[in-house]
Design a protein around this nucleic acid. Structure first.
Lengths: 185, 185
DNA sequence: ACCTGAACACCGTTCAAGT
DNA sequence: ACCTGAACACCGTTCAAGT
């Protein structure tokens, strides 16, 4: 006869997210998650195939949060204004939850099709506004790539504390973002 | 009486670099490096304080290589042309040695003062050319940050295979780089 | 002065045995 | 159907003992 489940995939993902925020990916161990769920490590394998599958589930939930944050922050009267707001929402998400953000860009993350699909969904708000700017179709993709490259590069350097020469980080982000949006025309 | 050393820090760093290129950071274990050096794992602690110290030494050697690659690639008649060439040299370094590049931006890498200093040295070529462009002093730092954010963001997304909508990656990089260099004025 | 084997506390993972 | 203890192969690291 079945023993009642002491935990569940959603609960394990939630615990994993808390561990991630508190200590980073390297402390997000199967043992630690199982322990906080009140269960022994081997039991986790009844809910997830392996540690990678658990990380993937966490990643998917973070990408969903990112998309929601971008949509919520994307206010403004014009497409360009909304892209500007989206840029700041992106940076706010990454700097508020650096560990979550770092998980998204761990090595080979996008190789998994589910994760790649979720990342594409998170990129949709930006594509929608870029298209609404009314620029030529062939300019949309390069501009999207320039914008995401800048946003990701900036916040990941900020998180890594790679900006070490003083000066205003806020201004540098604002300047860079404005320059790119100006290039839209 | 002393036993002759079977290995040395430089040799261990070289072995670590080969392991890194072959399989990535996670396979860069103390045991694996020691084994390839023909020595048992505990012996490595006579040459490096711990695994982190070994990784740091590898990181320093990679940052030195990066600076050399940037300087070697930075040809051109004008400062702006040289910045353009530097951008392409940066991307070439990252895409040719993705594992080495990924090591540079691992979490909290820049917290170590030696690594931060080496990163600053690697950034010098770019600063030299930006200053040679003759723009106002207060514009140098924001522009440097925009340029590095774009370059790092672009190549790290490229390495992570995050560009999944087709189109020319080469063109997107060239477009983005040109847009930023145009903003210099 | 460097190398070694043994040991410790940790991983992720498997599996047979419980209920 | 899920949970468990025991086991396996791995980590990084320490340390006393060799030479």
């Amino acid at each position: 006869l079945p023993t009642p489940a002491k935990t569940s995939p959603p609960e394990l993902v939630e615990i994993a997210r808390q561990l991630l925020d508190a200590s980073g990916v390297e402390f997000l161990s199967v043992s630690a998650v199982a322990q906080r769920a009140g269960v022994k490590a081997p039991s986790l394998y009844k809910h997830f195939a392996d540690r990678a599958a658990l990380l993937r589930a966490v990643e998917l939930s973070i990408l969903a949060d990112l998309e929601a944050s971008l949509r919520a922050g994307m206010r403004g009267a014009t497409p360009k204004a909304r892209l500007h707001a989206l840029g700041h929402a992106y940076r706010a998400f990454a700097t508020t939850h650096p560990q979550r953000y770092a998980l998204l860009y761990r090595q080979d993350a996008m190789v998994d099709p589910q994760v790649a699909a979720a990342a594409a969904v998170a990129a949709e708000p930006m594509f929608e506004q870029l298209k609404a700017c009314g620029l030529e179709e062939r300019r949309v993709l390069p501009l999207a790539r320039m914008l995401t490259a800048f946003m990701h590069g900036f916040v990941s350097m900020e998180i890594a504390r790679a900006f070490r020469f003083g000066g205003s980080i806020d201004e540098a982000f604002e300047d860079g973002l404005s320059t790119i949006l100006t290039a839209i025309g």
